[in-house]
Simulated scan of single mutants.
Amino acid sequence: MPRIAPEDGLTKFQRYREARRRKGMKLLRVWVPDPAAPGFQAEARRQAALLRDAPEEAEALRFIEGAADWPEP
């Protein structure tokens, strides 16, 4: 059975994205470090060592703890 193109001319993904936009959502794409990449673990350890015992570390941990205790709706 032949497929019939939708009258709006949009693909399934375009319709999905448009529906999300109408609901006030915005598509966001983010590049993040690949933990399988060579050197990732060494760089993570290097950055963690820079923060160890720094005031920023304590601040970040307080924020994480507060977020974890956030009440459910």
Rank of each mutant, 00 (worst) to 15 (best):
P55G: 09
A42R: 02
L27S: 14
R3M: 10
D8T: 14
Q41I: 02
A36I: 00
V30G: 00
P38C: 00
P2K: 07
P6A: 15
M1K: 12
G24S: 05
R29M: 06
K26P: 03
E7C: 00
L50G: 14
F40L: 03
W31K: 04
E65R: 07
G39V: 01
V32F: 09
A19E: 06
P55Y: 12
P6Y: 15
E7W: 08
E59I: 11
V32K: 05
K12P: 00
R52C: 04
E72V: 06
Q41G: 01
P55H: 11
A37T: 08
I4W: 14
E18R: 15
E18I: 13
L28T: 07
Q14P: 02
A68W: 08
E18S: 14
L10F: 04
M1N: 10
A36C: 08
L61R: 08
P38I: 07
M1G: 06
L61P: 00
F63V: 12
W70C: 00
T11I: 13
F13D: 14
M1F: 01
A67H: 08
K23D: 01
R45W: 05
A49I: 04
E56F: 10
R22H: 04
I4M: 12
L28R: 11
P2Y: 00
P33D: 05
A48G: 09
Y16H: 12
R22V: 00
A44N: 01
A54L: 12
P71I: 07
P55K: 13
R17F: 13
A36N: 01
Q14W: 06
A19C: 11
T11P: 04
L61H: 03
A19I: 08
L27Y: 03
P6M: 12
A5H: 15
D53A: 15
V30Y: 02
A42T: 08
K26D: 03
R3L: 15
P2F: 04
L27Q: 10
R45I: 03
G9I: 03
A60D: 04
R46A: 10
A60H: 15
I64E: 00
R62D: 03
L28E: 09
E72M: 06
D53H: 15
W70F: 10
T11S: 15
Y16L: 14
R29A: 07
R3C: 12
P35W: 01
R62Y: 03
E43C: 05
R20H: 08
R3N: 14
A67I: 02
K26F: 14
Q41W: 06
D34T: 02
P33H: 11
P6V: 08
R52H: 13
E57Y: 01
G9D: 07
M25F: 15
W70K: 08
K23N: 03
P71V: 09
R3Q: 12
R3Y: 14
F40Q: 01
R45E: 13
A48I: 00
W31T: 07
M25T: 07
F13G: 09
A19S: 15
A37K: 03
D53F: 02
A19T: 11
A49R: 12
R15Q: 09
A60G: 11
Q47N: 11
Q14D: 13
E7Q: 15
R29C: 01
A54V: 09
A67K: 01
L10K: 10
D8W: 11
I64S: 03
